[in-house]
Amino acid sequence: MSDDADQPTHVDLGQHSERCRECDAAVGEAHDNACWTARCLVTGLNRTGCTADHDCGQDLWTGWWPGQLECEQLGWMLRPGVPDLNRLYTEAVWDRDRCLWVKPT
């Protein structure tokens, strides 16, 4: 049996949320340091899992699940409201300057 106590029981990726479900940051506020929703601004991947020797920066809560809007823009959706994040992380490129995933050129 897995220990899912630290994970939310349901995340509706297609819905805008005024607060981060993990750390309760409001839109425009930085996630707390232990928030598993926050991204490393250097790699674009999960900040809590980042083991690289760099400052990950302070990711702000936008109201959308990380990668949601990029998937919608790229047309990489599994169904309405459900982004294909696996495709995003394997095919897209993280643009550090704009802090978003882009289609490779």
Rank of each mutant, 00 (worst) to 15 (best):
G63S: 01
D59P: 07
W64F: 15
D55N: 13
N33M: 04
A52T: 11
W76V: 03
W76C: 05
G75W: 04
W61S: 03
R47Q: 12
G44Y: 10
D53N: 14
Q73V: 08
C35I: 00
T37I: 13
G28A: 10
T43N: 12
L74A: 15
L41T: 00
C50Y: 04
T48G: 03
Q58C: 13
T48V: 15
A38T: 02
C71G: 07
T43H: 10
D55E: 08
W76M: 08
W65D: 02
H31G: 07
A30P: 14
G75R: 06
C40E: 05
A38C: 00
N33F: 14
L69G: 04
R47N: 11
L74D: 02
Q73I: 10
L45T: 13
V42R: 04
E29N: 12
H31P: 11
C50A: 03
C71L: 08
Q68A: 15
D55K: 11
L41C: 06
T51G: 06
P66L: 07
C71E: 07
Q73G: 11
R39Y: 03
T37Q: 02
C50H: 07
L45E: 14
T37V: 14
Q73C: 09
W36T: 00
W76Y: 01
A38G: 10
G67Q: 01
W65L: 08
C50K: 05
A34F: 12
A38N: 07
A52L: 12
M77K: 12
W76R: 07
G44M: 00
W61R: 01
L60W: 01
C56L: 06
G49D: 15
W61D: 00
L60V: 03
W36G: 00
L78K: 08
L78Q: 12
L78M: 10
A52E: 15
R79I: 07
N46D: 13
N33C: 09
W36S: 06
R47C: 04
L60D: 04
P66F: 09
C50L: 03
E70I: 09
T37L: 10
G49C: 04
G49I: 02
D32V: 10
R47M: 07
T62Y: 08
W64D: 07
